[in-house]
Structure formats: C-alpha cells, structure tokens
C-alpha cells in the first residue's frame, strides 16, 4: 500500500488546520492581493525592478561535475540562475495567528523546494534563492497563512509574539513596521522587514476578525480558544511519542 502522510494527530479545528496547511494537496485559500513589487519592498533585499544579483554564474554557463544526484534533481528557478540566498522572517502572535513557527517550517518543507526553514520560539525564518523566495513569500503573505494584524514580517527585532496586543488589536512591534489605518481599516507597512523606512506604503489588507482567526488558527490557547488539553487525541500521541523516545534505549516493545 502506498504511503499516505497523515501530517498530524488531533480532533479539533486547530489540529485540522495544521493538517490542512501542511498538506500540499490542499490549496491555500487566497485572502488578499499583493503585488510582486510590494513583496520585494517588504523584504528589502533588492530594489523593485533591479536585476537579481548572483552568487555564481547560471548553471547552464558553468561546468557541472558528473554527479548522479545533479542529474536526478532538477534545479529550482533561482538555483538555475545562480541567485543569492535571501530570507523572509515571520513573527506570529500567540493570540490566534493563523500560523506558528513549527508549522511554518513543516508546511514550507512539504510545499516548497530548495528552502531552508529555521524555527525559533517566536519567529520563523525561511531562506532560499531570491527568485524562489519571492514566489514563496507571495504565497505566504497573500493566503490564509497570514493575518495583517497578528502576523508580522520582521527581519530583526522580532519581539512581540507572546505580548499583549495593542489597543487596536495589532501585535506589539517596537519598530512599528506596520500601522493600522483606522479610516480604511487597512494595515500598511511603512518600513521594510529590517526597519528601514519605505518610499511608499505597502498595503497588506484588512485585519481579519476574531471569528475568522479562531477558525483558521493553528495555535492552542486556553484563554478564548481551544485548549491543548481538550484535544485528547493529540495528547495521546504526544504522550506516546514522549514515552517511546524516553524508553528508546531500552528497546521498547508495544
């Protein structure tokens, strides 16, 4: 029988969302439109319209060693052109942000090629070739994985994921890279991900309401959301894995 990944245990909405986002056959729901130029501005690695700086000559122009793995694996677009490796980093508020660092790394590994995700407690970075990164970043920002108020695009000074929200519902950001325009109920980025002021504001859409956030979140939260302890199936599996790992040296038998 062919292997069918299950992605994760759990019988709650949170667990279901986790499985959905990780499963590459699930098409991520598009929530907002964001242009290629805006993504380039947000990341701040190159000026919009500028040529991609390269780290090495295009693969077609350089001598490749005779390697069976290179024959087997098709290079990504960015690798083919010899692009530099660049990054985008996200911070997800614990107050029902749609994604969270571990999940981001899992889903990027399942969905994208040639990525190097790095997971930290309050932020998650993904590195890859610049051309590929822009494509992936666009998907990460324009789909249900992103909420303008509870998710931040932050290259440095990421502090905020576990803090109380501001009065207007935005996650704390000491650099205030994005502001909520109350008139149009629209979040605008005024600085790029490392905190340099942008020449023009980048609109990333309306903050989603609490109902949407709770239906799309992948974070267990006992205050106002679904408590981790309420997901019996998840607990059972976590405990089982913990137990087997602990006993591993003693050749556990089930």
């Amino acid at each position: 029988m062919a292997y069918k990944p299950q992605y994760g245990p759990g019988s709650t909405v949170v667990a279901e969302n986790r499985r959905k986002y990780m499963d590459p056959s699930h098409k991520l729901e598009k929530v907002r439109d964001i242009s290629d130029e805006d993504i380039v501005l947000l990341m701040g690695h190159r000026a919009p319209g500028a040529a991609y700086p390269t780290a090495h000559p295009p693969l077609s122009e350089q001598q490749e060693p005779d390697c069976p793995v290179r024959k087997l694996v098709a290079p990504t677009d960015g690798a083919k052109h010899g692009d530099r490796v660049r990054y985008i980093q996200f911070t997800d508020s614990m107050f029902f942000a749609p994604a969270q660092p571990y999940l981001r790394s899992y889903l990027e590994s399942y969905r994208y090629r040639g990525v190097d995700p790095g997971t930290l407690s309050g932020r998650q970075i993904v590195e890859c070739r610049e051309r590929d990164l822009e494509k992936y970043a666009k998907e990460l920002v324009s789909t249900e994985l992103f909420d303008p108020a509870r998710t931040g695009i932050r290259g440095a000074t990421v502090h905020g994921h576990s803090l109380r929200l501001a009065e207007d519902g935005m996650m704390f950001d000491m650099l205030q890279r994005c502001v909520l325009d109350k008139k149009g109920n629209m979040v605008k980025y005024v600085k790029n991900q490392i905190g340099e002021p942008l020449d023009k504001e980048v609109k990333v859409g309306k903050p989603m309401d609490d109902k949407w956030l709770k239906a799309h979140t992948t974070i267990y939260h006992s205050l106002g959301g679904i408590a981790f302890r309420d997901d019996a199936e998840y607990i059972e599996w976590v405990q089982r894995i913990h137990s087997l790992r602990t006993k591993y040296g003693f050749m556990p038998e089930e």
Partner: peptide, 22 residues
C-alpha cells in the same frame, strides 16, 4: 512595558531613527 527604542537596536538597520506613534 516593552521598550520602544529611539533608534533601531539590532540588524542591518541598526542606528537608524525609529519613529513610532507610541
């Protein structure tokens, strides 16, 4: 509460002014 620095404290933009409403 969490600090709001006058200049960007870390990263490539370190030292740039940090205007915030708060």
């Amino acid at each position: 509460g969490p600090r709001l620095p006058a200049t960007v404290p870390y990263g490539p933009a370190k030292g740039l002014p940090n205007p915030t409403e708060m």
